[in-house]
């Protein structure tokens, strides 16, 4: 993760990722704010086009 991102004053603290009963709403808000921050600061991750071959479930 971008180290600058960790210093952000986001609406919620970075969630405790391993917590089983995590507050998903807070986690999703944090992800959203991190995504917006990266886009606004030109630090979006490289986004490759995955899966050139379609996934087919083979019985």
């Amino acid at each position: 993760m971008n180290s600058n991102l960790l210093d952000l004053e986001l609406p919620t603290d970075s969630p405790t990722w391993d917590e089983r009963d995590i507050d998903l709403a807070a986690l999703n808000e944090w992800r959203m704010q991190a995504t917006i921050w990266e886009r606004e600061h030109g630090e979006e991750r490289a986004r490759e086009v995955p899966n050139p071959e379609p996934f087919v479930w083979a019985d």
Binding site: M32, T35, I36, R39, E40, P50, N51, P54, F55
Partner: peptide
């Protein structure tokens, strides 16, 4: 196998990746 959508004006609309099967 894949579609990607991007919102050109509003970062609150996260990119949408669509896997096709």
């Amino acid at each position: 196998a894949f579609l990607r959508y991007w919102h050109p004006t509003d970062a609150k609309f996260l990119p949408i990746d669509v896997m096709l099967v």
